[in-house]
């Protein structure tokens, strides 16, 4: 089994924990059955294979040594199969693939992390990494927008983030009767974030409409576009740069992404159906 190339053929991993995050989203924690993938960095993704159904790219929502966490929303055949797995089940994993958030490029700066919906999942290990090395960074702000209060991910983590010094703000599009927090889109939270634009780095993940609006707002407020990093999504079949599905103009997102600097993304995202 150690002879396998983890980039072409999947390596067996066992589901060691699974819990519901929202009505249609679960977190699954995987451990290698024997050999493990090479080390994974926050922002990267793995191709996770449900036996006989297929594999899909899933960002890493937690990295703990060889233990990998994925947050999967049941929207297609493979994701439904993965969502339905119970502890003890075996999956195949290929990777890790793609670019990471590259937190070390932001050393000494204020960090502003902005998540829309499921976009919080790939940002979770970034928050963990930033909090794990507090003297290296300035203020850490996490801005989270979700559709409804019930769609909020990482609810167990948020208190811990706050306790460790992160400034976390949450807003929802559609409140319920119990919601007493902010209502509105995530860009409206930018005014709450304390950061020095000339010495800050921003990390964004969510729907492209939200990424475009937020990144432009950051740029308008004086953040250098190359210090705004965004995570983008396109169809992926191989993860290795060979299948062509994940093209976004000049980018192969499995190789040049999913995390790209706004300087790269800005001219591409306005082009419809690129």
């Amino acid at each position: 089994m150690t002879a396998l190339h983890a980039d072409m053929a999947p390596v067996p991993y066992r589901v060691v924990r699974r819990r519901d995050e929202t009505a249609d989203t679960a977190e699954i924690v995987l451990e290698p059955v024997s050999s493990a993938l090479p080390p994974c960095r926050p922002g990267q993704f793995a191709m996770v294979y449900a036996f006989g159904v297929g594999d899909i790219p899933l960002s890493l929502s937690g990295i703990d040594g060889h233990r990998l966490t994925h947050t999967v929303r049941a929207v297609g055949a493979v994701s439904r199969a993965l969502y339905g797995l119970r502890p003890g089940a075996t999956v195949g994993v290929r990777g890790p693939f793609g670019t990471g958030w590259d937190l070390d490029t932001a050393t000494g700066r204020d960090l502003v992390i902005v998540a829309g919906g499921l976009g919080l999942a790939p940002l979770r290990p970034l928050v963990a990494a930033a909090l794990g090395a507090p003297p290296s960074f300035g203020r850490l702000t996490v801005l989270i927008g979700t559709r409804t209060p019930g769609d909020l991910l990482c609810t167990r983590d948020i208190d811990a983030w706050r306790a460790n010094g992160a400034d976390v703000h949450i807003t929802v599009d559609r409140p319920d009767t119990d919601w007493t927090g902010d209502v509105g889109v995530v860009t409206t939270l930018l005014d709450r974030a304390e950061f020095v634009p000339g010495n800050a780095a921003a990390f964004l993940c969510g729907p492209e409409v939200m990424i475009r609006a937020t990144a432009r707002e950051f740029a308008h407020r004086g953040l250098a576009p190359d210090r705004i990093r965004v995570s983008l999504e396109r169809t992926m079949h191989c993860g290795t740069g060979h299948c062509g599905h994940c093209q976004l103009g000049p980018l192969l997102l499995c190789r040049d992404g999913p995390v790209v600097a706004w300087t790269r993304a800005e001219p591409l995202l306005p082009v419809r159906e690129l």
């Binding site: 409804t148 559609r174 319920d176 009767t177 919601w179 927090g181 902010d182 209502v183």
Partner: peptide, 11 residues
């Protein structure tokens, strides 16, 4: 549409 109508107080 209950969610949308019920609204929420500002903090």
């Amino acid at each position: 549409a209950r969610q949308a109508r019920s609204g929420g107080a500002a903090p």
